[in-house]
Nucleic acid binder design. Sequence first.
DNA 1: CGCCTGGTTGACGCTATTCAAAAGTCGTGG
DNA 2: CCACGACTTTTGAATAGCGTCAACCAGGCG
Lengths: 287, 287
Amino acid sequence: MQHRVDDDRSRGSSSIGRERPASPSGSGAGPDGADPFLLRLRLLTGLDDAEIRAIEQLYGTPRTVRPRTELFADGEEARRIHVLLDGWACRYRLLADGRRQITAVMIPGDLCDLDALYLEADDSAVATITACTLAVIDVAGLRTLVREQPRIGEALGWLGAVENAILAERNACLGRLSAREHLAHLLCEMMIRQTLVGKATADRFALPLTQEDIADVLGLTAVHVNRVLQGLRSGGLIAQRQQWVTVSDWLGLRDVASFRPNYLHLEGLDGAGRGRAVAPWSVATTP
Amino acid sequence: MQHRVDDDRSRGSSSIGRERPASPSGSGAGPDGADPFLLRLRLLTGLDDAEIRAIEQLYGTPRTVRPRTELFADGEEARRIHVLLDGWACRYRLLADGRRQITAVMIPGDLCDLDALYLEADDSAVATITACTLAVIDVAGLRTLVREQPRIGEALGWLGAVENAILAERNACLGRLSAREHLAHLLCEMMIRQTLVGKATADRFALPLTQEDIADVLGLTAVHVNRVLQGLRSGGLIAQRQQWVTVSDWLGLRDVASFRPNYLHLEGLDGAGRGRAVAPWSVATTP
DNA sequence: CGCCTGGTTGACGCTATTCAAAAGTCGTGG
DNA sequence: CCACGACTTTTGAATAGCGTCAACCAGGCG
């Protein structure tokens, strides 16, 4: 029961998995050389540099994890919080009979398990999709920091509230959208989120999810995801090559999903952001 | 554009709606005479009496709202947080074409809009189902309280994390359960939550949701909910009379849903609770 | 007494699932 | 370099679950 660093139990030992090349327009960890989580905190919450640094000082030695590996499978590691610095991961629930529902897709800058700050028992699992590098924060340390600096607690509360809004949105999608609508919605969301961390160009982003992963996000089967993807492709809305998705018709895709990015709560950005171009989703609505 | 106190815009003005009698085993606001929200905080978070009282002192004059009424339809009232003291309400998202997804069913002791503490924009609406009485808390006041007493902030973070877990669970249900499984799951959850606030007997609780409401929780149509309900009834799992649901076969219902109450995060209770009998869901698992 | 909301029923159609198998893709080992 | 093995994607046909439409019933309230 030692702590392990890098093993791979979810697939055969030969599944190193295909990696995709580094980000299209970034050089690794994120813009400005800062890590994407702290950058996001600074852009979207009111935290100042000193507060950001205080959080950074809680970082333990980063951990790199192979693709398709479950994080903290042994419940004991719940005493840590993981910041996803690079790669893709997902949070999911597994039913007794093997059915899986992915409840969150995580990309650089996301917290994997904020709930560990407040809850004892962990009711969902987290696994990597690609190779990932994670910063590890000790829960006890973060708790005392929050106690000393309530503004940091507020920022974490904000993060939690946004996670909440995203979950509620996906709830609505799962319950009320058709497969086509829902898939388009997912693609819109990933396009925006990838852009925000500097990992997308104006119309392309990497999507390392398999069709089975997508199915587990959308509550469908992989077979049906395949067919619906073909529908979007043949409609000229997207194109795919390997793991890259090209959004050929953003407005069309957005309309299929009736996508509105409110629930992502990006209202700290307003086109200013960093030096990047104004996001495509901020263009005027269709007539 | 004055603030109104009690109007009813979502239905015709003649829809006072049928009220159900007071709680089966309680005398109104909740046990101990305390309100169910503060009681829940005391039982499940580590807050002491002084901290609970500090929260209570933020309560403004309570508001009573008629059934089927939208709360704070005008976005400006987001500067307040609402504690549901009595009655049923729900949080939902409305799509452009009228489709509705209920993302949370709220009963006494629940917060209607914790997210208002952290977020500016509100992306979901809240409406009453029955007549409700709400305590109103000013956001600014709560923010300063949280800043002065970080333990209160932590308790609110805990509440948010539990909401999160509940949303994730419903995500999994929406995505991966059949209609029958999901409906059984909902009934299990409501049975437990009603019991916790002293509004259920050993095997019965009031369910003022219409079949259309249930459909909007489960992501189904009212017609199909009707048929699935009949399936549960004819299988001897439940019985219904008016708004009362009798769970005739708890273990059976639990097994249909594969229900496990982890996600409700009741791990502060352990049968001790108040003077109430040990909950039925804590009995041994089936062989 | 008649209306209105909510519950019930039936026939039919569509969406997504299931099962099965073929056709890439990529990494690995000979 | 080529061939093998494990995934992943793609395709087809048959099926099941749930939605749609429409009508009818039941109870509470004015």
